[in-house]
Design a protein around this nucleic acid. Structure first.
Lengths: 155, 155
DNA sequence: AAAATAAATATGATATATCATAATATGCAA
DNA sequence: TTGCATATTATGATATATCATATTTATTTT
């Protein structure tokens, strides 16, 4: 019965993909998690954003990002210095080995994506993205009115 | 750039749905997490399966299931006695309040699903499920041969 | 300028997930 | 029947996520 529910299928697919992708990275002997890699990527592409923004990008909260950054620094993949312009902020920059790691992981990720999507052409993937986006938006309505309605409905 | 990746969209959609669905349950003042509810459901529908099977159904590991069951028992939603037939196993049965809770949650879940899928008709949902299933299968190939190929490719 | 407010990051407490392994019970082989 | 392999659940160690809040710095108000 669970199998009939789309959200179950969704969860199933993404969880399996994550395992699969992580295995692809591990297999190459690279010591990083998908989530750490994601954060590292965001920082590389947008070095000036704060932890809140990163958190939003990768769907975690600020505290989680702080701890992942801590980890990345400990692993020597990231340099962190307090910003001169605004001493609340951090200047972050990938280290050499951080850049190297990103480069090393790239083929694993590409290969993972390829294999995961085999049999689905570009048009299908676009359609899929579009529908998932609709679900996302449907779930993003923070309406307190509809909250009330929901309550009333079963009052 | 992250936005272009299907797996990112996938993760985004499922995470947002989870928040959304949990909020729908919380809002009704029901004290259970989606994952606890899922496990409770599986046990109700298939009372005789072991923790390994439950784990597989909900994509967690056996240890997590053991702890969730522990919780459900503590919350008084589940009765657990060692099985007479096989004393390694547990006989599990929802308590009255466990059944009640499932019943109470049902409308929240239904409402959540409805709203999350609004604008997507049944055919679309079926197609979506089908494609997600393909991704799942693509990621389920535990081939050690292809592992070797992957390595060679970048040797 | 002083006080109040806001912004950015860090951290304690807690919950949950996961790995490895322990503890217990069963079933099979000899 | 005794011993060994297997099956089932529990648990310690560790990692990660999340909430609430603390800490530090910047900005705004008066």
């Amino acid at each position: 019965m669970l199998n009939e529910v789309i959200f179950y299928t969704l969860e199933k697919a993404i969880k399996r993909y994550r395992q699969f992708a992580q295995a692809g990275i591990d297999r190459r002997g690279i010591d990083i998690t998908i989530d750490q890699w994601l954060v590292l990527n965001v920082i590389r592409d947008m070095p000036d954003v704060g932890q809140m923004d990163i958190a939003e990008q990768v769907f975690k909260d600020q505290a989680s990002i702080a701890r992942i950054i801590e980890l990345l620094v400990k692993k020597g993949l990231l340099d962190r210095t307090t910003s001169l312009a605004d001493r609340r902020k951090l200047d972050m920059k990938l280290t050499e080995s951080g850049c190297q790691l990103i480069a090393d992981v790239a083929p694993a990720i590409a290969q993972n994506r390829m294999q995961a999507l085999s049999g689905l052409d570009e048009a299908v993937v676009e359609q899929l993205k579009c529908w998932l986006e609709i679900i996302f938006l449907n779930c993003s309505i923070h309406s307190s009115e509809s909250t009330q309605q929901l309550h009333d409905e079963h009052a």
